[in-house]
Design a binder for these strands. Structure first.
Lengths: 128, 128
DNA sequence: CAACTGTACTATGATATATATTACAGTTAG
DNA sequence: CTAACTGTAATATATATCATAGTACAGTTG
């Protein structure tokens, strides 16, 4: 279900948080859908349940999921603020990297063609 | 001279490597210019000499500087390969981030305006 | 009741980071 | 030559983070 890199410097639980975020953002998992239980996912990924719980706790703290003790974890209905904040973070990261690209001498043409390439890879805007 | 974040999750020596790289890339420090000695820089930044040495070792390994035992560390004359590799790495990072931007629903217009913004901040192409 | 769920806690091991300290050899100015 | 710089290496120590193992308890559901 997820591809985790055990030997990465990025902690497993953080990788999990990112992957699950993507699933939620792209609506692979819709609102109120139940996530795999802590123990089940731990078994599937052959990692410790505590690690899963840590990821779920973080996701809950960030507002992406909610939990009902005894029942399970569920995808939250994304409030507007979360989406806006998410977009703002992405913009800042992108701006920083773009600045660095200019600094090290990348030409604008090269950057623009990267934008086109990314657009194609990502499916480009609305796929309707 | 450098602004380091002690409490950052990124190691101090890595922060140092990045900062010094930028200095070299932007030619704030020119080829064959001498870098601060391990002990001096350690004192100025109030961190351990070993940490500076680790950063210098890494920079030497990556080809950005060279060292002469007994004399000091000096900025290397950047071979073509280093520049090319650097550019390739930057392109890959940028492409990844651009893909993610599209994934989370950023519009192409928004991205293009970020490119313009970055161009202005970075001074935009050749400043002649 | 049994088998799930979440949650909490302790203990342990592994690893990375930064520090302190000492030591030795090359370079250079006085 | 000597003193004061340089780089380099090695050891020991402290600390923080991460992941694991194990146990326990309470809520939910068929």
């Amino acid at each position: 279900m997820f591809e985790l890199d055990i030997r990465s410097r990025q902690p497993i639980y953080e990788q999990l948080v990112e992957k699950i975020k993507e699933f939620i953002i792209r609506e692979v998992w819709g609102p109120n859908e139940q996530l795999p239980s802590v123990r089940l996912l731990a078994k599937e990924l052959t990692i410790n349940p505590n690690t899963i719980q840590k990821a779920y706790r973080e996701l809950e703290h960030q507002g992406y999921i909610y939990s009902i003790p005894g029942k399970g974890h569920f995808v939250a209905t994304q409030p507007e603020e979360v989406s806006r904040e998410k977009l703002e973070t992405a913009k800042q990261q992108l701006l920083k990297l773009l600045c660095e690209a200019f600094y090290i001498g990348m030409k604008k043409d090269a950057i623009l063609s990267l934008v086109d390439e990314a657009e194609q890879i990502a499916g480009g805007g609305d796929p309707r």
